[in-house]
């Protein structure tokens, strides 16, 4: 849209142009939390799910919001029980990344427009950037860090390597979490269907051909179990 005829002059509007710290993490029961036994969850996360990281997410200052604008959540993340006091504004993505040192899920748009933040909640893929962290209360969250066990890759991860279904790798965790769900939903039955059901994950490097091939490959292996 570059037309310029009968447009107003630049600047001349024809309308009136008026001018992680809270750190309360525990892997035990809520009562421990209430008792003030603050156990830094980060070290456990580093061990459980994120081998490359030195986790330092837990901090000690109180949350800078009024008490009625904060809340405590309890959930299961990558198989580990987690409790945390959060600012009600916090997204699930920011909780994972900034508080729990689970940085596999990526921020690419923060508005549900790219898919880089895709994780599973109760087995379904969601955009964690548009999910209030408060909403994971009592739920099970799975991130890329929890998809495989140590060095044994999930078939989808191996297929992404085999088909070079990535370049920069930034969208890759979201692609893989979406792809695993795509297969589980029964939407990996044809190239066309894979393309449609993977269109919520933008790969700016343009690895789509490899992504489709990887999902076809992994789907057959996942079905064989």
């Amino acid at each position: 849209m570059t037309g310029s005829d009968d447009m107003p002059e630049d600047g001349k509007a024809d309308t009136d142009n008026r001018t992680a710290r809270s750190g309360f993490f525990t892997l035990s029961r809520r009562s421990a939390l209430e008792g003030g036994a603050a156990i830094a969850a980060a070290a456990i996360f580093a061990d459980a799910s994120s081998p490359a990281k030195t986790a330092t997410a837990a901090q000690s200052a109180p949350l800078p919001v009024a008490s009625d604008q904060a809340l405590t959540i309890s959930a299961t993340i990558n198989g580990q029980p987690v409790a945390a006091e959060i600012d009600a504004r916090t997204s699930l993505l920011d909780l994972l990344r900034e508080r729990l040192a689970l940085t596999g899920a990526k921020k690419g748009c923060d508005h549900g427009q790219c898919g880089a933040c895709t994780v599973h909640v109760d087995g379904r893929r969601v955009a964690s950037c548009l999910t209030l962290a408060a909403k994971i209360e009592g739920r099970e969250v799975l991130t890329i860090e929890g998809l495989s066990d140590g060095a044994a890759l999930h078939p989808m991860q191996q297929a992404f390597i085999d088909h070079d279904a990535l370049q920069c790798g930034y969208c890759t965790p979201g692609q893989i979490m979406a792809a695993v769900a795509c297969v589980a939903e029964g939407n990996a039955t044809s190239k066309e269907r894979i393309r449609e059901y993977m269109s919520g994950n933008i790969c700016r490097c343009g690895a789509y051909v490899g992504i489709v091939a990887a999902i076809e490959d992994a789907a057959s292996k996942m079905e064989r179990g």
Binding site: P51, T54, T103, G104, Y170, T172
Partner: peptide, 27 residues
């Protein structure tokens, strides 16, 4: 030959600039 850094990338283990953790970090 497979992409040499793909193993880390498919596990979300690759650290990009915003992923590196620091104690006492301000935003």
């Amino acid at each position: 030959r497979a992409r040499i850094d793909a193993f880390d990338k498919v596990r979300g283990a690759t650290e990009y600039a915003a992923d590196i953790q620091f104690p006492g970090l301000l935003h």
